[in-house]
Simulated scan of single mutants.
Amino acid sequence: MIGTVDSPALAGKLILGGWALNSSLSDIGFSILERDCYTCQHCGFESRPSKKVNHGFMVPVDTNSPVLVTREVHSGKCLCQLCASALAVNWSVVRQTSDEESAPGCLIWLPEFTQEKISIVASLILATSNNVPPSHHLYEAASHALTAFNGRTAHMAANVQLYKNDKDEEFVRALSLLPSEYFDYREQALKGVRFWPNPKFWAKSSHYWLKAVYENAAGFE
């Protein structure tokens, strides 16, 4: 589930919704999202479009494309932003500005859970931690969960060769430069590695997720 792309900047624009503003990609993209009912084909997260956010923060992706861009409806699938980010970690764990906390996420070691399970759990945790007041009964649980997942970064160095503590950017750049004959090694090295999102980066998306998906769910009253 973890992967790299040939053009991190392009993949990042795609994941953040730039495809919907591109006339050569938007019609195909919306056809894919509508066909898949705005449901992530990896983790199962279900969004919905609105007048203001017509893509529901979902992404049309061709997982066989080196940049994730899909130009044919039949070759694309609908993914949530978190699952799409996991396929482009040389964008999603790299700082977007000089701010140390500007990366969309980080790498964690958690082989007990698939990336799909982590993505669906993360969407709920982010929607909660970013948007409900500290007095809400779910806020404390979300905060504890964030601490636990973030704590798994400390296990990366002990379990992944060539990884150095807190050096996500160096690691993923090295991964993206590996020649094809080393892909088997790469797959083995990444077997227990997962992408975990940065709540601050996904604040806008998580606010939408809360309003569009979770707010009427049991426990949010």
Rank of each mutant, 00 (worst) to 15 (best):
M1R: 10
I2Q: 02
I2W: 03
G3E: 14
S7M: 13
P8H: 08
L10T: 03
L10Q: 09
K13L: 14
L14R: 04
G17S: 09
G17W: 14
G18Q: 11
S23C: 02
L25K: 12
L25G: 06
I28H: 14
G29P: 04
E34K: 15
C43Q: 02
C43A: 05
E46V: 10
E46L: 11
S50G: 07
S50L: 12
K51R: 13
V53Q: 11
N54R: 09
H55K: 06
H55Y: 07
V59I: 11
V59G: 02
D62S: 09
V67M: 05
E72R: 15
S75N: 10
S75D: 14
K77T: 11
L82M: 07
V89M: 04
S92D: 01
Q96L: 09
T97S: 12
S98D: 15
E101H: 08
I108R: 07
T114I: 04
E116V: 00
K117C: 03
S123F: 01
L126T: 03
S129G: 00
P133C: 02
P133M: 11
P134G: 08
P134E: 13
Y139P: 00
Y139A: 06
Y139K: 02
E140T: 10
H144P: 04
G151F: 14
G151A: 13
R152F: 15
R152T: 11
A154T: 09
A154E: 11
A158C: 12
V160P: 04
V160M: 02
V160R: 08
Q161Y: 11
L162S: 13
L162Y: 11
K167T: 05
E169K: 14
E170S: 12
S176R: 08
P179F: 03
S180Q: 13
Y182P: 03
E187I: 05
Q188S: 15
K191N: 09
V193I: 06
V193N: 01
P197C: 05
P199D: 02
S206L: 00
Y208H: 14
L210F: 02
K211G: 13
A212W: 00
N216S: 08
G219F: 10
F220C: 15
E221A: 11
